[in-house]
Design a binder for these strands. Sequence first.
RNA 1: GGGCUCAUAGUCUAGCUCGGUUAUGACGUCGCCCUUACACGGCGAAGAUCCGGUGUUCAAAUCACCGUGGGCCCA
Length: 772
Amino acid sequence: MEPKISEKAWNPELEKNILKQWEEDKIYDFTPEENNFTIDTPPPYPSGRPWHIGAAAHYSQIDMIARTARMAGKNVYFPIGIDRNGLPVELYTEKKHKIRMRETERGEFLNLCRNALDDLEAEMILIMKNLGISGDFVNYYRTDSEEYRTLTQSTFIKLWKKGEVYLANRPNNYDWVSGTTIADAEIIYDDLQTKLVYMKFKIKDTDQEIIIASTRPELLCACRTIIVNPEDERYSKYIGKKIIVPITNAEVELRTHHSAKQEFGSGAVMVCSYGDQNDVVLFRELELDEIVAIGLDGRMTEVAGEYAGLKPKQARTKIIEDLETAGFVEKIDDIVHRTPISERSKIPIEIIPMEEYYLKQKEKVENIKEIGNEITFHPTMHKQILMNWLESINIDWPISRRRFYGTEIPIWYCKNCSEPHVPEAGKYYKPWNEACPIANCTKCKSTEFIGEERTFDTWMDSSVSPLFISKFNRDDEFFNKVYPVSIRPQAKDIVRTWLYYTLLRCEELTGEKPWSEAWVMGYGLDEKGMKMSKSKGNAIDPLPVIEKLGADTFRFWSASEINHGYDFRCNEQKIESTKKFLSKLWNVSRFLSSFPVIDSGTPNASDKWILSELDKLVKECKKGYEEYNFFIPAIAIREFTWNVFAAHYIEMVKARAYGIEFSDEERDGAIFTLHKTLKTILKLLAPITPFITEHLWKILYSNESIHKQKQVDVENIEEQTEITKEISEFNSIVWNEKKSQNLSLKDSIKMEIPQILKPFEKDLKSMHNLLD
RNA sequence: GGGCUCAUAGUCUAGCUCGGUUAUGACGUCGCCCUUACACGGCGAAGAUCCGGUGUUCAAAUCACCGUGGGCCCA
C-alpha cells in the first residue's frame, strides 16, 4: 500500500499554513465558564533588537503550559500583553534621534517613543506568533494604553485614599544619567576599580593625627563625623575629640559605632552624606544633619567650594591632587570595590535626599509571606528567592520617577497653598498636560492648580497585570469568574520585582493572592555559560533561527534542553541537531501511513510488550506535565519513540504488518498496535511541538485538531522493563554477529533465542531472518 | 560577611529521595553499512579520577561532615 505521506522529511514551511488554519478556526477562543485556567502571561518589553533567544524559549514554554492545560480539559485563557512603560524606550529614542528627553517637548518626545515601541513590538509579536504561541493576539493589551493606565491610576487613587501613599524627603538612590530615583530592586552591584585614599586628619589642639581611608574623598565637604569600632583600642583615647577635616577645615567629633570594621583601611571611617547605604543608616541613627554635596544634575554643589560644578569622579581626581599637594595623603591603594550601579543606565548611583512618593510595604511583609505560602511554586526551590527578599525589605517602595514615558501620577497641587488633589478613579489623567478636574482647592478655595509632572515606577503598572487581564473594575462578572488567576509564569531574575510587587499590590487591592501557582524559569546563557547581553555582543537573534529551523525544532530544543528552573545554555548547533528527532517522528509516521487505521485488533506478546512500555511513557509524561516541567516528557518521548518503538518494535513487526507469512489476525494486531502507539505519541507531544503533531494527526487520524483532544490517560498496565532490556540486548547480539560475519542485515543466520524471549520468537525470526 | 543553587565524557543530561547494574541517553567525534519509514538513517567504537578530602558501611555517584570552584541574590 502506498504511504499517505510521501515526503521524506518534515518541512518547517508547513508551519505557516498550519498557523493560518488555527487562526481561521479560532481554536483557542475563550469565554469564561467553570474550570477556567488563566495565565498571567508576562508582557515582554520591546527594548531593542534583537529580541532575546532565551525569551523566545521562555515564551515557547509558557505556551506549553497553555496547551498542557487545554489537553487536560481546562478552559484556558491565555492573554498576550506588551509592556511599554519605562526607561529603556526613552534611552532608545534619545539615541535613535540624537535628542535629549528634557530638551524635547514632552508630547513630541512621547510620540517618538510610541513609534519606536510600535516597530519593536511588531517584531516581537511576529516572533511569538511564529513560535506557535496559542495566546490571544486579537485582543492583545499594552501597558501604555488608556485602559491600562486608567487601571494603574485607579489603583493608585484607591491606595492614596486608604492612606497607603505618602510623600517623604529621604536619601534616595539617584541615577543622574536617567535623571530619576530608582528602587533598591533596580540596583545591581559591580566590582569596579577605584582608589582607596588614606588621608591624614588632625586632632584638634594637638599635633597628633589619625589616618582615615576612603574611596570617596570628594565627599569630605559632607563629612559629619568619624566613627571607629568601640573595641578598637587604637582609637579609644580619641573618642569624643574634635577632628579637623582636611581641605574644608570643618570640625567633627570622633565617635564609636559597631559598623566600623577594624580591619578595613585604618579602622576609622568618615561618615558623609551620602557615600553609601551605611552612611544613610548612620545619619539616621546618630541624628546628623545632612549636607547635600551632589546635586540632581550629578555634579558637586556649592558646598563643595572650588569643586562645585564638577562631576564626583572629576572632583575626586582633583581633590586627591590637592590633598597630595597639601601633604594630607599618607598612601593610595588601588582596590576593587563592589559598587552599587543602576541596572538600567549602568552607572554608579548616588544617594541624594529627594522628595518622592512612597507606597507602604514594610508593614505588609508578614501578609505577603502568608499569601506567598499559599502559592505553589514550580520549582519549589525558587520560593526561597521571594522569602529572602521579604526578609531584607527595610524601606517603603519609592514609586515616583522623574521620567516621561510612563503612567502619569494623577495629582494636582493648589498653586496657592500647594495642597495635593487626587481626582476620582476611573479615568486616565495627564496632569502635565490637562487642567485639574477639581474646580476649587479643598483647603483654600483657589482655582489654580499645577499638575504633577512625574510618572510611576513601571512596576506600578506591571504589578497589576492579573487585575488587568481579569477585568478588575471593568467587568465584575468576568472578574469573579477568573480571579485569582491560575498561574504566573516568569523569569527567575524578576522575582523580587515583578512577582513580589504583584503580590503586594493585588493583596492590597483585593485582599487575596493573585494566582494559585507561580512558575519560575532560569536565564538563557550563551554557549560558554555567560549571561547574554546586547552590550557583550553574545546575544543570539531568535528570528533567523526560527525561520531556518522551524518553531517545532526550536520548541523541542527548548523542552529537551532546559531543565525547569535552572539556567540554560543556548547553542545554535544544538538547536539544529534537535531537528533529527522530528525527522524520526515524521518517518515513523510515514511508515505507518501505509497501513489502514483500524480500531481494534488482538495484540500478541510483542504488541502487549510495547503497549506496556507506552503506558509507562504516558505515566511519566503525566508526571512532568503536572509540574509543567517539559524536560521530563520531551526526554521520555524521544527515548521511547526512537530507541524503543522505532529501533526495536517496528523492526520486529514490520513483516507481520505487511502480512508476509502471518495470518490476518496477527497482522491486524500489529497494525492496531502501531497506530495506537503513534496516536499516543502524537498527543503526548502535542503541547511541545504543536505543528508537526497537528499535521500528522490530521493526515492520519482526524479532521479535528489534535489541540482539541484530551490527553491520554494512564491504563496502569503491568511493566515489562526486563523484556525491553532483553530484546535490545538480543537484537544487538544478532546485529553484531551479522556484522562480524560480513553478512547483510537481510541475510539469514542461525541464532539461539533466549528462553525469556520465546513468546516473541515468531516476530524475532522474521525480523532477523533467523534459521531454525 | 550572609543566603540560595549547581558540580557526572568535548557539550547537555539520567541516576541521588530509599546505598549494591558493566554509571543512562542525546549532541559532537571516529569506523563500517543503502536493510522495501527514515543516510535528517542503521550498526558499532572511542571518550567519565561521578569537583576534592574525610567519615559511616561488607558496599558510596547516591548518606554525613569538611573543603574547592562556578552562577545568582542580599548586605
